[in-house]
Amino acid sequence: MNTKIFALVTFIYLFSFVLYLISVSSERKKISSVANYVTGLGFLLHAVGLITRWVESHQQGFGYAPLSNFYESLVFFAFSLVAVYFYTARRAKSDAMGVFILPLAFLLMAFASITPGMSSAIEPLIPALQSNWLISHVITCFLGYAGFTLAFALAIIYSLRGTKLGFLCRGISPELTEQLMYTTAAFGFVLLTIGIITGSIWAHYAWGSYWSWDPKEVWSLITWLVYVVMLHSRYVRGWGGKKMAIFALIGFVCVIITYLGVNYLPGLHSYL
């Protein structure tokens, strides 16, 4: 049942991406607000899907929050992304990020359901995953990743200005772009910090060591350090929005490596 809901959500996100695209290229405010409603609908269904999955896991007798395997993490990543996007867009009164964020949400959902070998089944948790710290760890990390993804989208908007694709940044001023890039990255940074801390507490209980230089731990530290640099770029003489955008891009690459790349390195965190 839950996978069917997620499939529907996937298509709704694709649809709202198309709407956002039409709205920025035609500069029609109406379409953009329709796109917002469609996204909102998708988001609500997404939440319903997560709750359904949670209930279904209880019905099967395992009863765990749907945050434990690769499939669930992709679905939750997309969910966090749309949540953080919505919050930021409403607060800043600008939908310009929608045209970048919705395709990403769509891709994450599509990747979750069509990748061969990806198990969407609800499966019982092995002992190491039976921890409440897991839940807080996963939620905070993915909200953090979502913040960084937004900063990345804003860095793209920042660099597209004045190019052929400049029409994509019509709905947002350069100052607001820069400011939002900073606040979304800062949000991601705070959440990643909490994510690393809750992860350390969990590791402390599960493996006896709050930090073991496992590749995923190291890459989360690298990501964290890259964003430290980005957050300081205002204070370094002669560094402006451009350097900030560059670090938002580098940081996002680190996020991807932390999330996916280290599956190919040996360690405790591998999803594969």
């Binding site: 230089w213 590749p215 190291v218 890459w219 530290l221 690298i222 350090l225 890259v226 430290v228 640099v229 300081h232 204070y235 370094v236 003489r237 280290v262 390195l265």
Partner: peptide, 20 residues
Amino acid sequence: STSLGIFLVLMLAGLSMVGT
């Protein structure tokens, strides 16, 4: 200096990366 700070933070990140 902040520049040295940035350099050292990047250095820590770089060394960590080499380690993985």
